[in-house]
């Protein structure tokens, strides 16, 4: 899961971007990708104005994978004009139900 270092000057921007990514909704579950725990971290290269989102999918054969990745890029680039976004899709650690936030569980009726 994403964590923030208070000594990092970009931590506020990272947290802001994380909040922005709540706008990306999983098209099948209708829950945002942050509460689903799909985003593992955000890396910002302030000089190159590049954002790298490290994330996973709920399964490696998720048919909506392309759409979710595209939404993440669109979301960052649409809200942070100067920045270009890239997604680093990782399978370690493997996504599990424990990644889902309490709010996500509530929305899923768990």
């Amino acid at each position: 899961m994403a964590s923030f270092d208070i000594t990092d000057p970009l931590s506020f921007l990272k947290e802001q971007m994380m909040e922005t990514l709540r706008l990306v909704i999983d098209p099948e579950l209708h829950i945002n990708i942050i509460d689903l725990g799909l985003v593992y971290g955000i890396d910002i290269d302030a000089e190159k104005k590049l954002v790298n989102v490290e994330m996973t999918l709920s399964s490696s054969y998720c048919p909506m994978g392309e759409s979710i990745i595209s939404a993440v890029k669109n979301c960052i680039e649409g809200h942070y004009d100067d920045y270009a976004a890239a997604v680093d899709l990782v399978w370690e650690p493997v996504w599990s139900y424990d990644n889902i936030s309490d709010e996500g569980k509530r929305l899923l009726g768990m």
Binding site: L23, V24, E66, S67, S70, A71, N74, C75, G78
Partner: peptide
Amino acid sequence: VKHYEHLTGK
């Protein structure tokens, strides 16, 4: 996917 892939997130 055809209609919204490029719009989703924006």
